[in-house]
């Protein structure tokens, strides 16, 4: 008790630091990974996948159409969802994406949109996300 009284300011600062570190570390509302490492799959094009290659993806596949139209020619229908690109980080969809255990395949008629969304999801920590070619 005496020690706590003497060192209360030290303990307070340490507690505040640990709290800030934990909040930053576990927050899904921020970026916390090495940007270069997360962007690596785009350098060697490992993030682009053809319809034929999707069979080799591990786990269940979550198909996301970013144009608002379910337009996948492969994949089981029940896992195809249509999310406009600018809504992909809303609470509902973010929860769905982060909770999904397998691979995620995104598609858009506009390559710029799929590229941009891929980069954001990769930098947020999602590893198995691919762009359908």
């Amino acid at each position: 008790m005496k020690v706590l009284k003497q060192y209360w300011i030290v303990l307070l600062i340490i507690l505040a630091t640990i709290t800030a570190v934990f909040v930053k570390g576990f927050s899904r509302n921020s970026f916390r990974y090495d940007a270069v490492k997360r962007a690596e799959p785009s350098v060697n094009k490992a993030n682009i996948i053809t319809p034929g290659q999707t069979a080799r993806l591990p786990g269940d596949i979550l198909w996301i159409d970013l144009d608002g139209v379910k337009n996948f020619s492969t994949g089981p229908d029940e896992k195809v969802i249509s999310i406009p690109a600018d809504s992909i980080l809303t609470k509902t969809y973010k929860k769905l994406i982060f909770k999904h255990k397998g691979s995620i395949v995104i598609k858009s008629a506009d390559k710029a949109i799929s590229a941009g969304v891929w980069m954001i999801l990769a930098q947020m920590g999602i590893k198995n996300v691919y762009i359908l070619n």
Partner: peptide, 25 residues
């Protein structure tokens, strides 16, 4: 605390993901 953190010499993205996404799109 620092020894236990996954610090690297590289940067990570900054800002809120929603804001960055809306800028990109």
């Amino acid at each position: 605390i620092l020894a236990l953190l996954p610090l690297t010499g590289n940067r990570s993205f900054s800002g809120k993901p929603e804001k960055v996404l809306s800028e990109i799109l």
